[in-house]
Structure formats: C-alpha cells, structure tokens
C-alpha cells in the first residue's frame, strides 16, 4: 500500500482511460535522446534489412517513397511517462518491407544513424504493427524526433521506435539494444508498465 503525501492532488490532471498506467497526457512532444541529433540528408539516407544468411536488402529514400504509404493514427507512450493520444503519421509498413525477406530468426536489432540500437521481436513489427515513418502531423519529421525517418512501433514504449532508423538486423536471440543494456526493459509493453529491468 502506498503512503499518502499530505495535501497532494489539488492540481491533478483528468484521468483518461486511454492512458496506460502511470502515464500522463502531454500536448508537447518531448525528446529523449542519449546523444546529439544526427543530421542525415535524404539523398544520403538508406534503410537495409540484413538476414542471418548475410543477405542485405537496401532501399534508398526514393525507393522507400515509391512503396505504398500508409496513414497511421495512433497513441504513443514514452517510458518517461508522457503519452500523446491520436497522433498522425505517414510511413511505409514493415509488412511491405519484409514481404520478400527470407528469415527464420524471431528477433530483430533495429539500428540507427548515430549508433543507437533497440531490440524488437519480429512479430511485433509485422501484421500492421510497425512502420518506417517520415511524416508527423502532416509535416516532414523533425531531426529531433528522428527525421528523416524513424521506426514507429506504437504498441511498445517509444524508445523502441528508433529515431534516425538505418536498418534492421535479424537475430536468433533477443539480445539487448542500447537502453535495454542501460536499465530499460527488454520488451516494453506500456499496458504492463514494463519500464525497467
């Protein structure tokens, strides 16, 4: 049972059943990054999927833009406890990118420009659950928020939605990425409050 904090609660925010436990609603778009924001020109940008056989499939920016683009309306939840409801993104589904990829590995390591990594099970990237997103609220994605493109996997805490995404490498095991080595949960389900180790 929690202890009570005398006199706390007069400035409370409205609770919202759409918020996972321990989250609060924000109208801002806060930034959580461990280092400087990389600046990547779309002319130099590429995205690759590397399988266990060593096969590498790469898309340039123009090739990505030529793929079917989806509108995504979703809530997002950061482990630092802010949530945004009803955000709008545009991006390419990972189902599209994985359509011709031959792999039997169950896990992925998502890799970013700047060296960031995060581990996500493959099944959490497929079946309409994840995108390579390049627009937020009708505007090109800001570098601070991961532009030119970030992974968007909104059913997990947002550190899994790697900014400045550069590729996905298939892994046979669920190896920890950057924050997962630095105190954060391997999976990160906001509805189960899987924040930390």
């Amino acid at each position: 049972m929690a202890v009570f904090s005398r006199g706390f609660g007069s400035r409370r925010r409205e609770s919202d059943p759409e918020l996972p436990p321990g989250q609060y609603l924000t109208e801002d778009f806060p930034v959580l990054s461990a280092g400087p924001t990389p600046r990547i020109d779309t002319a130099d940008w590429s995205f690759s999927i590397t399988t266990e056989s060593g096969q590498v499939t790469t898309w340039s920016w123009d090739q990505l833009m030529a793929l079917p683009i989806e509108d995504v309306h979703t809530d997002i939840h950061c482990v630092t406890r802010w949530s945004k409801l009803g955000t709008t993104w545009r991006g390419v589904s990972l189902d599209t990118l994985f359509a011709d990829i031959d792999t039997s590995d169950a896990y992925t390591m998502v890799e970013s420009y700047g060296g960031y990594t995060t581990n996500v099970p493959l099944e959490d990237l497929l079946d309409g659950k994840a995108w390579i997103a390049f627009e937020f609220e009708g505007e090109p994605l800001d570098p601070e928020h991961g532009g030119p493109a970030r992974l968007l996997v909104p059913h997990l805490y947002f550190w899994k939605s790697a900014k400045w995404v550069h590729g996905i490498r298939m892994h046979s095991d669920d190896d920890p990425g950057f924050w997962e080595q630095n105190g954060y949960n391997m999976y990160g389900d906001p509805w189960k409050e899987q924040r930390y180790w």
């Binding site: 924000t26 801002d28 778009f29 806060p30 959580l32 990054s33 280092g35 400087p36 924001t37 601070e144």
Partner: peptide, 30 residues
C-alpha cells in the same frame, strides 16, 4: 531543456567533438 541541449550538442558536433563522446539528457517539450 530540449532546445538548450539540441543547440549545445549541435555546436559541439560542429566544433569537431565526436558524437559518441557527447552524452545528453533532455527534459520538456519543444
């Protein structure tokens, strides 16, 4: 604050500090 850290980190990179030698912690929205 986010704006401060963005500004400073960008200047550091422009001055030649390797990005991997810069650790950042930000708070607040834009």
């Amino acid at each position: 604050p986010t704006g401060f850290v963005e500004t400073v980190a960008r200047i550091l990179v422009d001055l030649g500090h390797p990005a991997e030698r810069i650790k950042t912690e930000r708070f607040g929205g834009k």
